[in-house]
């Protein structure tokens, strides 16, 4: 698709899409709400003719598909942040190529509730460390570790800063209809 868009037919936008929104097999056990792609989310991007750039999942790449549930404190380590920066630079490499298409907008779609991919609300648990039911966890305002490192690398490389939105798939009371309406409103703000 590189170079396909002219000034008169400008690419509306690029969506940096959290991995699991296009692959629910990457979720921790019991968190997959769809078989594969979260197609209602992807359909919003398709309808608005956004170019989709699926990002790698840093949790999956590091710990694999059999990993346990984690909280932000477990991922907030120098080693995990270093791992995130390797992945973020790979995302930035692709984004730099995409930006040559001259998009009007760049968005980053995270997953609220996630310890790693949250944009607005992330999962914490200071005592959490073993079996998932053994200690309490909570949701607090803030980014996940992966999103923090990704934003930092994009800024360091001087690339266009994306607008951010989190799909609250890991929060209690998640409503797909509400999330789709919010995503559509968010996309329209970038036009």
């Amino acid at each position: 698709m590189h170079g396909q868009h002219t000034q008169t037919n400008r690419l509306p936008g690029i969506a940096l899409l959290s991995h699991c929104l296009a692959n629910q097999n990457a979720k921790v056990a019991e968190y997959a709400l769809f078989p594969g792609v979260v197609s209602p989310i992807v359909d919003v991007l398709r309808r608005n003719r956004y170019l989709i750039q699926q990002m790698p999942c840093p949790e999956m790449c590091l710990l694999g598909v059999r990993r346990w549930w984690q909280v932000r404190e477990q991922y907030d380590t120098p080693g995990y942040r270093r791992h995130c920066r390797v992945l973020a630079n790979s995302v930035a490499d692709v984004l730099a190529v995409r930006l040559a298409e001259g998009p009007r907008d760049v968005v980053l779609i995270g997953v609220d509730g996630s310890p790693s991919s949250a944009v607005n609300v992330t999962g914490i648990g200071p005592a959490w460390g073993g079996r998932p039911e053994a200690a309490a966890s909570a949701m607090v305002d803030g980014r996940g570790v992966w999103i923090e490192e990704l934003e930092a690398v994009i800024a360091e490389r001087g690339l266009c800063a994306p607008r951010l939105i989190g799909i609250p798939m890991e929060l209690p009371g998640f409503s797909l209809d509400d999330a789709l309406a919010e995503l559509q409103r968010f996309i329209e703000l970038g036009g």
């Binding site: 692959n23 629910q24 097999n25 979720k27 056990a29 019991e30 968190y31 997959a32 709400l33 769809f34 078989p35 594969g36």
Partner: peptide
């Protein structure tokens, strides 16, 4: 799990 909808296909 009844709570997990993954397909096992990638």
């Amino acid at each position: 799990s009844a709570r997990d909808a993954r397909s096992g296909r990638i």
